Amino acid sequence: MLGRAAPICGGRGVIVGTVIPLPRASVLAGVMIIGVALGMMAALLAAVEITATIRPDLAIGLVIGVPSIVGMLTILFSNRRWMTAVGAMVLAIGPGWFGALTAIQVATGV
């Protein structure tokens, strides 16, 4: 019977509809580290290539918001472990990108 867990106490079971398939912890940690590294590289590339002046609140919203929304939707709607890992990697791009942009701002004194 799909969707039923083993009985816990007193013969009552827990009804489980669907769960997010999680990869192993080491795989999940590894793809998140890769996501942070990709975010840092994206920030360096954006800082070098984009010369337009952007409001700081808009930049923070784009840098944190877009990867967060895409990553969370990928995780929530994933039905395979590798899709959950990809969603976690996309979700981790935001903090890496934000950290690198912050470091660039501090280093340049702007």
Score class of each variant (00 low, 15 high):
Ala42Pro: 06
Gly35Arg: 00
Gly96Met: 04
Thr18Arg: 15
Val63Gly: 06
Pro23Tyr: 05
Gly87Ile: 02
Gln105Ile: 03
Ala29Arg: 02
Val31Asp: 06
Thr102Gln: 10
Ala100Glu: 01
Trp97Glu: 09
Ile93Leu: 09
Val106Ala: 12
Ala107Thr: 02
Thr84Tyr: 06
Ile50Gly: 08
Ala100Cys: 14
Ile104Trp: 13
Gly3Ser: 10
Ala100Gly: 07
Ile33Thr: 15
Ala46Asp: 09
Ile20Lys: 04
Ile20Met: 10
Asn79Val: 10
Pro21Glu: 08
Val70Gly: 00
Ala5Pro: 11
Ser26Pro: 15
Glu49Pro: 05
Gly109Ala: 08
Cys9Met: 12
Arg55Thr: 13
Gly13Asn: 15
Arg81Ala: 13
Ile8Met: 12
Leu73Tyr: 00
Asp57Pro: 01
Val48Ala: 11
Met89Phe: 03
Ile50Val: 13
Thr51Phe: 11
Val19Tyr: 15
Met32Pro: 02
Met89Cys: 12
Gly94Phe: 04
Leu22His: 12
Met83His: 03
Ala92Trp: 02
Glu49Asp: 14
Glu49Lys: 13
Gly3Cys: 08
Arg12Glu: 11
Ile93Cys: 14
Val70Ser: 01
Ile93Asp: 03
Val66Asn: 02
Val110Gly: 12
Leu76Pro: 10
Ala46Gly: 04
Ile50Trp: 11
Pro21Ser: 09
Pro7Ala: 11
Ala37Phe: 00
Gly10Cys: 08
Ile15Asn: 01
Val63Leu: 00
Val36Arg: 10
Pro21Asn: 05
Ala103Lys: 11
Gly17Ser: 12
Ala103Leu: 12
Gln105Cys: 11
Asn79Thr: 10
Ala43Trp: 01
Thr53Trp: 05
Pro67Asp: 06
Phe77Asn: 06
Arg4Tyr: 15
Val110Arg: 08
Ser26Gln: 15
Gln105Met: 09
Val19Ser: 08
Trp97Arg: 15
Gly39Cys: 00
Thr53Gln: 05
Trp82Leu: 14
Thr74Leu: 02
Val36His: 04
Ile20Pro: 12
Gly71Met: 02
Leu28Pro: 00
Gly99Cys: 06
Ala88Met: 05
Arg55Ala: 12
Pro56Leu: 10
Leu44Tyr: 04
Ile64Glu: 07
Arg12Gln: 14
Gly94Thr: 15
Ala43Gln: 09
Ala52Gln: 12
Ile75Gly: 04
Ala42Ser: 11
Thr102Val: 08
Ala59Gln: 05
Phe77Val: 15
Phe77Tyr: 08
Ile8Asn: 08
Val86Leu: 14
Leu45Ala: 14
Trp82Phe: 07
Ala6Pro: 14
Leu101Glu: 11
Met1Thr: 13
Ala85Asn: 06
Pro7Asp: 09
Val66Asp: 00
Gly96Lys: 06
Met41Ile: 10
Thr84Met: 00
Gly3Ile: 04
Glu49Phe: 12
Ile20Asn: 03
Gly61Pro: 07
Arg55Glu: 05
Leu38Lys: 12
Ser68Asp: 04
Pro7Ile: 11
Trp82Arg: 05
Ala52Phe: 07
Ala46Phe: 00
Arg81Ile: 15
Leu76Gly: 04
Ile33Asn: 05
Asp57Lys: 13
Leu38Ser: 09
Gly11Thr: 01
Ala37Gly: 10
Pro7Glu: 01
Met89Thr: 00
Val31Ala: 09
Pro56Ser: 09
Arg24Ala: 05
Ile34Lys: 09
Gly10Ile: 14
Pro23Gly: 00
Ile50Lys: 14
Val48Cys: 15
Val36Ser: 10
Phe98His: 06
Pro21Gly: 07
Met41Tyr: 12
Arg81Phe: 11
Met83Asp: 02
Met1Asp: 13
